[in-house]
Write a protein that binds this DNA or RNA. Sequence first.
RNA 1: GCCCCCAUCGUCUAGUGGCCCAGGACGGGGCCCUCUCAAGGCCCAAACAGCGGUUCGAGUCCGCUUGGGGGCACCA
Length: 493
Amino acid sequence: MDLKPVRTRFAPSPTGRMHLGSARSALYPFLLARRTGGTFILRIEDTDVKRTVPGAEQELIEGLRWLGINYDEGPDIGGPCGPYRQTERREIYHTHAWKLVELGRAFPCFCTAERLDKVRQEQMANKQNPRYDGACRALDPEDARRRVAAGEKYVIRFKMPKEGSIQSADLLRGPITTDNAALDDTVLLKSDGLPTYHLAAMVDDHLMGITHVIRGSEWLPSMPLHVHVIRAFGWDEPQFVHLSVFLKPSGKGKMSKREAAEAIKDGHSIFVSDMKDLGYTPEGVLNWIALMGWGVSEGDVLTLDDMIARFDINNLTPSPAAINFAKLDHFNGAHIRALRTDDLAARLKPYFLREHLTVDDPTLTRIIPLIRERLVTLDDCLPFAAWFFRATVQPKPEELVAKGLTAAQSADVARKALEILSALPEINPATAEPPLRALVERLGLGPNQVFGILRAAVTGQTVSPPLFESMEIVGKEKVLERVKKAIEILEKM
RNA sequence: GCCCCCAUCGUCUAGUGGCCCAGGACGGGGCCCUCUCAAGGCCCAAACAGCGGUUCGAGUCCGCUUGGGGGCACCA
């Protein structure tokens, strides 16, 4: 791959929540910039004032930060090509739109939305393609200028050539040729004075020196228009890369609001800001989205640094990808297992605190090695280890009874185990396991039966971290106390 | 309706004309390990959408069909 430093950007519109698709649209240009020693920019495309939702920009910024996708220039940190929020660049677009008018490549249009709607409906009724009918295209330029000066509402439309064709290219798909006749006199500057995407993005990408435009495939059909606009200004177009969409897990149809709700029911989400609460790590999420649309031949558990080292824009795939939450779980678990103890402890603590547990840090640190490889999500620490931070446990009576034994027999086993444990100076795997295994032998029982009783007694549950290691952390005093309590419960059954 | 894009195991993908009776990962099945649950190890099932070309040779190139996706706003 060509490693000349690139300038790339993530240019979201702050119109809703940040989802997986947005995250990936940010990731790839980020990776390309880092791989080549280039620059990655965040630009907010907020030119649709009606659709802008308060807080969306903040969610975007926080999402990127959480994922570790850091940008070099952006609305909150500035940079040499600012401002990075399009509503703050009004004059730039205004000037550029009129420049196109002067060049004869665009024209003011005074048509009302009502008339345009009517025309469109008639066209559709006649099975024609809906398009601008050209009413204002033929207006005398001086006339038009006077009407604008007089304060009449107007938009500026691109004056699409009636004949000929244009060639544009997508890096992954190759060149495509489009007849100009199939293209429309698209609005570039709206009557509120703000630009449409087709003007704003082209102007900004040029002014910000963007070399590679990596964006969603919904832009593929308008790429020819974009190339027209860019060339009308006399600029060179950047490399275009269109990313395919994410499909819902079934592979039938793209992710939708309905599908997003389904995911949440299953304990999953397509929204970046939900991921942390659900116990996902940035590493896991990143790894997951990175590999939907990017083919690596082998070794697919990757950190952000691994991705940067291996990223090659030519290995992106143009076909749509169905999301698969099982794979997210896999990557998340793999990255959790790779975390250092202190790091994992710090990440787990909030989930215990969320349950109003009092966390003792040294204890937490000792628990980590026992649960690390059992965690798929960070909040899995609760079922495995919340009991460590509770003063008492409440085993269900029936869970204290070993398989194949009666309550009375189980109580007897527990009494014998208690006797052994009481005699130990302290309880740990080295001291407790050999005599208890000997007990298993002596009673002619299975280890599951004896250890199962103790597990339920000490942890209050049937699934737990390894028993002897757990008992060591709990401490002899509490272990004895809990086994005694278990015996009482069993005796009453 | 018109325009554009895509097409390898259930899913994500490797494959850039001979190295492919198609490789990896997830998921699934089996076995081993084992105090529960995991993790780990070993093994198994599972795909080139169809039809025509081009070529000595096609998963790989071309065309058509089918299927899927996207777009046709003073939204991005």
